[in-house]
Every structure is written in structure tokens, then in C-alpha cells.
Design a protein around this nucleic acid. Sequence first.
DNA 1: GAGTCGCAGTCGTGGCATGG
DNA 2: CCATGCCACGACTGCGACTC
Length: 321
Amino acid sequence: MAIKTSELNALLFGKADKRRATTVLEAQKAVSEKAAVIELAVAGEQTVEFQLICVSAGEVVSRTSVFIENAREQSFLNEFALSDILVTFREHGQQYPAVGRWVDGDKIEVLDGSRRRMACIFTKKDFLIYVASGINSKHAKFLSDVANAHKPLSLFERGKEMQAMLHRKEVLDQKELAKVCLCSEALVSGALKAAALPLQLLQAYPSVDELGRPTIVKLHRLFFSLSDDEKSQLFTKLEQEPLWETVDLQGVSRITRKVTINIEQWHASLKSPVEHTTSAVDLVKGRANYRHKGDYLSINLKKVSDVDVQAILDFIQAQLA
DNA sequence: GAGTCGCAGTCGTGGCATGG
DNA sequence: CCATGCCACGACTGCGACTC
């Protein structure tokens, strides 16, 4: 659920009027003075001193990292997923500083602003961020979660959060998840399916935010109908280049649709030739041959005595049970 | 030629019913 | 308990017609 910036600031800092240095002019002024320090109450509890830091464009990757518990999946932040802010970044640079904490001396962990960080990397712009020491993990998670409320998480990211809640036993089942997450049980089902899909598959799309429940359910069905060998073949195809970049269409929706069609076609081509293309291999001439493809094994036996049948069946049972 | 408007198609969501 | 399908409704997008 999206919330207003004013509400976000109020949640973030308790006293909204303390964040005066987040406007463009004040942020630029603070940077130029190299001494911008603001004192803020995180979550209305702990008062923390934030220092405005300007990380030069060339150092954004090496000096900063994203809070590991941030629900937003960083590998999805491509130029399509960031298209809503990239134009502004290219023309005017970063409008609002991010928020982070110091780690390992001079490194910065970004708590609020992972999309802005990635936009700076894409556009090769300096990265403005308010940084504080002594922010504990609980407050770090709070800042991260509130920031993410500003732009809704994708179904995959929500699914990951739900998986974690189930894992931590914060909720009993999907029904309770739906209540806690204020969504339908059908959406919970879809979100968990999305979270079960491999990143390589989702990265085939221009923007994972565009993937709704029906598409996720379709992908889940397609992917989990593949054998391990077929999944490997699919990954090999996906690794060559992002699938969405090969689609010559305009508009995220159309590209998304086309990517799904392409994956369905790949799936069909992987599934169709399986059983019939492998030829039988003779094990004992005239009496035993087999076909082996992926994790599938078919054995044909002729002229087998009852004793041998029982021995073979016992062996298979002992081996596979 | 550029801008605006309305329409159709597509896909999203939540709610509900049903079946395994 | 969970997955799935159906339904109604809403949002978004692209296209074509129309106007200036």
C-alpha cells in the first residue's frame, strides 16, 4: 500500500519538520557546506544523528551496499524497473537523499533508497545519503520496511516476506498470512508460488512488478513440470541474455506478455521430444533393453522367470524407497 | 503534423465456490 | 488447508478517428 511522503517522513523520523535537509536546495546546500547533520527520532524512539554524505559516482558500488534484510530484490532493479525515476536522475541527479548506517568503518549500508542507489549507478551520478552510527538491526529493518511501503513490493518480494514469516512461525498457515498481510488467500498462494520460482526465470522479464497472479501461476506450473535436466537447459537459454531485451516491442505490458509466450514456447520445445527421440540401448541382447532420458528410465525385459521378477522388483524397491 | 479523445483489449485484483 | 477457476470490476496501453 502506497503512503504519502509526508506520512512516510512522519513514520521515519517522528518529527516530520526535522527533515528539512531533504529538499533539493537544502540537500545541495548541506552538501556544499560538508557539515550537514540532522538529529532524528527513528520510529519515534531512538534519537540518532544523521550526517549527509555525498558518495562520488565512481564509489557508489564499492562504498555502499543494501541492507541484507531489505525486502526489495536488488537483481530486479534494471532500467525498466527504475524507469519511473531514471529520467529525473539523468536530468537533475538525485532529488532526495537516501538513509543508511555506517558499517565496517567507512562503508555505508543503505536502509531506505536502494532504488535511488541503483539509479545513481545506472546514470553515473553522485549518491546523496544521510548516514548514522549506532542504528540497531530492529530500527534498520523498520526504516527499510517503511521505505518499501512507498513503492509496493512485487508479488515475488511479498512471497519472500511471507515465506520468512512462515519460517519464523509468526503465522500458522496461509489463511493467517492473508489476514496479517491484508490480502486474499488467493494472493498469498500466488505470492508463495512467485517466491518459489528461480531468479533467473523472473529476470527474463523487464519488470517483475508487472507479473501478477495469473502469470506467476502459469510460470510456476510450467517450471515445475520440467525435469532437472530440462530446468538446466532452460537456465542455459536464460543465461545467454535477458529475454526481455530480445523482444522488439514497445511498452512493459506487451514485452511482459511476449516474454511469457516465449517461455511457453521454450517449455513446449523442451517437453515434446523427450520420450521418443531417445533410442533403446541393449543391455542383454534379445532379453533386456532400456531408454534413459534425464531422470526418466524405462526398462523392457523379456523371458523373465518368476524368481528373477521378484528379485528385480525387490532390488528396485530397496534402491528407490 | 501534433495533440486529444474514446474505444477495445489485456491483465491486474479480491471475493467466492469448489474440489483434492 | 490449500489450490484453482470463475466472476466482476478497475487500471493501463495502444490504436484509430478527429480536431486544430
